[in-house]
Design a protein around this nucleic acid. Structure first.
Lengths: 231, 231
DNA sequence: CCGCGTTCTACCGACGACGGACCAACGCTT
DNA sequence: AAGCGTTGGTCCGTCGTCGGTAGAACGCGG
């Protein structure tokens, strides 16, 4: 079911009416490594004029980003300010966060909305009722997506009683498949729905829980991490 | 620490060498609601020519998306195929997934890399050692980001023993602050680092765990959900 | 004083994306 | 046969983005 597609994205960080994109970030990085705006632009094969103008725009929103000095023995040069370093770090963080959701496998479950209270909904699925965030308005059937990196597995015998944890969605299931990565395994757990729930687990955890095909486990995931959209 | 910025994104889904963006999606949605390509384009204030051409491109990658019929009593019309519906649903899912990471609060922790095994790293932080995914290569200090919707809280007394769960990162802490939303509360838990760890929790869970400022809890989050980037 | 390599600023041209206009083909109704 | 509103396809003008070029200012060294 469904069609298979790549999921891609462009990340931005913004302040005021300016938004910084990947292009701006590579420019700043090149300035940092080349030591001058000039060297940076032609190492990137880009025009000096627009790059310089762009930096002025960025600085209007974020404050000083590049310490520029013209004249002098070596003709001058530029280096990044602390603000620029923080900006780059912030961009890296959101970039890798987005990469996370883009690359990580997720399982999508069909379901029917039974109740809705603000953004929080309870949905009836083939595996049972669960709670999820559904941001948009609507009614009827929904598709829930559960990111594999938000699913935690427990030994079936020692599962925490639901009242003592904030992970409300808990289901008993049996391991159907394990794809071992280098250090991270992808475990497919059948919880009674058409498709198994995928869980990302470190190899350590896989050994510690003695995960193998056929083993009974309980899977849990937070309501705030599973998101639904209406069909 | 850090500068405050909006985080934004553009989502795409791709197949072959074609990538579908939000513009394409609104076009398809307009065709669906208007009943014809012509009505769709001028309800959007866009040119027919390019829209038609664009659909041909999309269909080259995804197969038939729009059933077009010209001539007839009403002059003809167009409606979406099942494939197009699936495409729209897929786009909605990735869109809301990205919105999730864009809107959800996250806490960033500084740390020092102590070991690294593939993508999996163990990092020394002010709160103790924890395991995280750090995709890029590098060395030295890192910044870990822990999305609030991936943090689960447990009663301090009945925390599951670490060996029985796949959530490896567990810390004892005390609740510092609670921001009550409509149905979802944001709980800040001090675990010994400079900044508290934020956890997104439903109001139900907040009551059930009797969460209030000063209460002792244990927070846990999966290694595969916390991502690190080098400074 | 001149040379150097940089930053600053402005202008031009190429390219792509898009809207707008146009015409043909279609198929049913009248 | 004429009319209608759609789809199919093409062409042109505009606008924004970007590279390229050119010139001025800067400040230190020779």
């Amino acid at each position: 079911m469904g069609i298979d597609v790549r999921t891609e994205f462009d990340a931005y960080i913004g302040s005021g009416d300016v938004t910084v994109d990947a292009r701006d970030v590579t420019l700043l990085r090149a300035i940092d490594s080349e030591g001058s705006l000039n060297a940076a632009t032609d190492s990137l094969g880009r025009s000096y004029g627009h790059a310089q103008q762009r930096i002025v725009e960025l600085e209007a929103a974020f404050g000083s980003l590049v310490d520029r000095q013209r004249g002098g023995a070596d003709g001058g040069g530029s280096e990044l300010t602390e603000t620029a370093d923080e900006l780059l770090a912030a961009f890296d963080r959101v970039q890798t966060s987005f990469e996370g959701v883009a690359e990580v496998a997720e399982t999508v479950l069909p379901g029917a909305l039974v109740e809705r209270d603000g953004e929080l909904a309870t949905v009836e699925t083939p595996a049972g009722r669960l709670r999820a965030l559904v941001p948009s308005a609507g009614d009827g059937t929904v598709q829930l997506t559960i990111p594999a990196d938000a699913v935690t597995l427990h030994e079936a015998t020692t599962a925490p009683v639901p009242d003592t944890t904030s992970a409300r969605n808990q289901f008993a299931g049996t391991v159907r498949d394990i794809e071992g990565g280098e250090r991270i395994a992808r475990v497919a757990v059948d919880i009674g729905a058409d498709d198994p729930v995928l869980a990302l687990v470190t190899e350590d955890s896989r050994e510690r829980l003695a995960l193998e095909v056929g083993r009974e486990v309980t899977v849990s995931f937070k309501a705030t991490a599973t998101r639904g959209v209406f069909d």
